[in-house]
């Protein structure tokens, strides 16, 4: 073991998710401390054009793993391609974003190669020679320091928006290694019949830097209009509490919380949300939390950084205007 720190990326329609650069930047420090090469791994069909994106963030080497059968993401095809590469190259740790794809792919790969795995980590480090990660447990109520055992390859997925991407250095270059993945049609048992894209321009909540979220206080589905307006000036994604989702005002995919999405935004604005423990579990690691609530006793007031105690319908529209002005300056 010990032949490199791998950072795996599955591009989504030709773009690389930001979390890959966040992980590379942090992993660069670990690779240097361990004197191991930092290797980006990119998997898909026709992804070679993206190979140059990783060196500026510190990658020494880029594996471009391709096969025509890897056009759409399938756990079967991608797990085979990645597990084969890991088995051949024997990296000491494999890192990937805790995205929808990362969460689906990496535990399967871990089982295939008998690796140790920790999911949705918020920090990576070293304790002597051993890899360590931090991760939340019990829905954000506890932080666990996890140590990887030396006898297995380590795999960790990293929560987006938590690690900080370094400034890219365009003068850096990396060795590119092209790998023809050995995947056959018979390996891929799950057939993609249809992909129904929702709001195409919308940044997924789990990767959004700014989130404007609305709860039962929005009164009905049309109440979200003012949040959409605020989100537009902020470049934010709109989220919701379970109460709002259960009422049918917003789709299930908008729910933030213990039984929804876990988000980690730079700025989270909670409008008409009381701040139940199950909601906080999904957004508590956001950097700046703002509450707009008419109840001065709402639990969210002890869990946020800034609070406006007033009627959200009277506060949000002028807030949108104020921010529009600030942004125009």
């Amino acid at each position: 073991m010990g032949k490199g720190i791998f950072v795996v990326t599955v591009p989504d329609q030709g773009t690389i998710r930001k979390v890959a650069f966040e992980i590379l930047s942090e992993a660069r420090k670990i690779a240097t401390a361990k004197s191991e090469p930092l290797c980006a791994v990119i998997i898909g069909k026709g992804v070679a054009a993206l190979a140059g994106k990783f060196a500026p963030y510190g990658a020494d080497k880029v594996y471009v793993v391709e096969n025509d059968l890897l056009e759409n993401y399938t756990a079967d095809g991608y797990a085979k391609a990645l597990a084969d590469l890991i088995t051949r190259e024997q990296p000491s740790i494999v890192l990937a974003g805790a995205t929808v794809v990362g969460k689906d792919l990496m535990p399967k790969v871990a089982a295939r190669i008998n690796a140790g795995m920790a999911a949705d980590c918020t920090a990576i480090g070293l304790d002597g020679d051993a890899f360590t990660v931090k991760r939340y447990m019990y829905s954000g109520k506890m932080i666990a320091d996890v140590k990887f055992q030396a006898d297995k390859v380590a795999i960790a997925t990293i929560r987006p928006n938590v690690l900080i991407a370094a400034a890219p250095d365009a003068s850096k270059s990396a060795e590119v290694v092209n790998v023809a993945a050995e995947v056959s049609a018979a390996d891929i048992r799950v057939k993609v019949l249809e992909v129904v894209k929702g709001d195409a321009g919308k940044v997924d909540l789990t990767e959004a830097e700014v989130i404007v979220s609305g709860g039962r206080g929005m009164k009905d589905a049309s109440g979200y209009g003012i949040l959409e307006d605020l989100a537009k000036v902020l470049g934010a994604t709109v989220g919701a509490s379970r109460a709002a989702v259960d009422a049918g005002w917003r789709p299930v995919s908008d729910q933030v919380g213990q039984t929804g999405k876990v988000v980690s935004a730079n700025l989270y604005i909670a409008c008409g949300i009381s701040g139940a423990i199950q909601h906080y579990a999904g957004m508590g690691t956001s950097k700046v939390i703002v509450a707009i609530n008419k109840d001065g006793e709402a639990p969210i007031l002890s869990k946020c950084d800034y609070a406006v105690i007033d009627d959200l319908f009277k506060v949000v529209p002028p807030l949108t205007e104020e921010i529009r002005k600030l942004k125009a300056d």
Binding site: G116, T132, Y136, I143, A144, V146, F148, K152, T285
Partner: peptide
């Protein structure tokens, strides 16, 4: 392959 070595409150 992993072990929790310490729990702390956030």
């Amino acid at each position: 392959g992993t072990r929790v070595v310490k729990f702390t409150a956030p």
